[in-house]
Design a protein around this nucleic acid. Structure first.
Lengths: 207, 207
DNA sequence: GTCTATACCAGGATAGAC
DNA sequence: GTCTATCCTGGTATAGAC
């Protein structure tokens, strides 16, 4: 890893822990193991370090859906829908756990989550990314999926968007409750399991 | 309003907009209309201003349940339950709207919401208050209420806590989506109405 | 209790040697 | 590309006159 990469890496950790204003250039330099002045050979300002982090996260986010096995918002979702066609409670539980744990422990997502909470009101770009990733995209993805499943008779016909919000909102709430409490993931998961079970009971067409 | 009160008032607005570190003592003094040095006749430090704001919000929060017509976590809830006994969809919609709009527009709650998002990871006291008010208390209140309603046959018998989370999580998600977007409250309310309708359809025993 | 003046320091950033 | 030395600004806080 180059020095430049190590700077963004350490800076992301510090910004997500102490906030942008709460992190000094010296803090970052110390973490990297160089003097603060040396840092300016790699970035022309503290703000530029922050901007490069935003780039880094954007790039990481683009791979997300692929790594999670989720199609992009604007790509076709037929194959995923086929996957869910014989959806069991165990399938749905495993999927929700996978997504939840990923959000909570992925090194980029989890740091971005905290950073975004702190900086969203200061930084329009962060605000936009945070809302897009954790709200709009998450909901519209689930909506499309559930809409398809309703059409295929896997879920009872109804309001797909309302169902999507009912599925995602508890995950979002639990993320808020357990972000930064990685030692209590098991507790979070047991609550999540109960919500998924309830969701399955409500929406899944009985076999 | 005394000068001291005006300082906390303006400081709360500034802290909830620009964050603690992003707000200077001069910013606060300017907002109040005095010189920054004069401010130290009322508070011995910037931190003390912040602490007095925490006090102010704590005091305000204590009145919340009363003002919303909601019993405290540890007080009796029988009368509220009686109120819901003949619960119609319109009743539930009106209640959820009232709670949601209150959270979003109450001058103390709405500023605390943003402040807490920014400062929760720096300040254990803020973290604790935020999680208690917007997560633990909100969920446990709804759980007690729904548990009682299930016992009385108003709701189908089942997992009251899961139902409570299904009711509250969408409200929490919408608060996150629309905090600081007071011009779009109508859009938020229409989404909320759909969720409440769905909730009512699922849990309310058919008459 | 408000003001002016000032002390003090931390943080961002640059210059120039190696 | 790292270092030391230094500049500059802005922010917290105090002293003392009115």
């Amino acid at each position: 890893m180059t020095t430049k990469e190590r700077i963004t890496e350490e800076a992301l950790t510090l910004f997500s822990t102490k906030g942008y204003k709460g992190t000094s250039v010296k803090n970052i330099a110390d973490a990297v193991g160089i003097k603060d002045a040396s840092l300016y050979k790699h970035f022309k300002s503290k703000q530029e370090i922050f901007d490069s982090i935003v780039e880094l996260i954007s790039a990481h986010i683009s791979d997300l859906s692929v790594r999670l096995g989720m199609p992009q918002y604007d790509s076709s979702y037929e194959s995923a829908s086929d996957f869910y066609k014989n959806l069991s409670l165990e399938d749905l539980t495993a999927l929700s756990r996978k997504v939840f744990v990923f959000y909570l422990t992925d090194p980029y997502i989890s740091r971005f989550w905290k950073l975004a909470h702190m900086e969203q009101y200061q930084n329009p770009q962060i605000y936009e990314m945070f809302h897009r990733i954790f709200m709009e995209n998450a909901i519209s993805y689930q909506t499309k999926l559930f809409d398809e499943m309703m059409k295929q008779g896997v879920f009872y016909a109804g309001d797909a968007r309302a169902a999507a919000i009912n599925f995602y909102a508890p995950i979002f709430l639990l993320l808020n409750m357990y972000a930064g409490q990685e030692d209590q993931v098991e507790e979070a998961l047991s609550i999540l399991d109960r919500q998924v079970e309830e969701f399955y009971r409500i929406y899944r067409v009985k076999l």
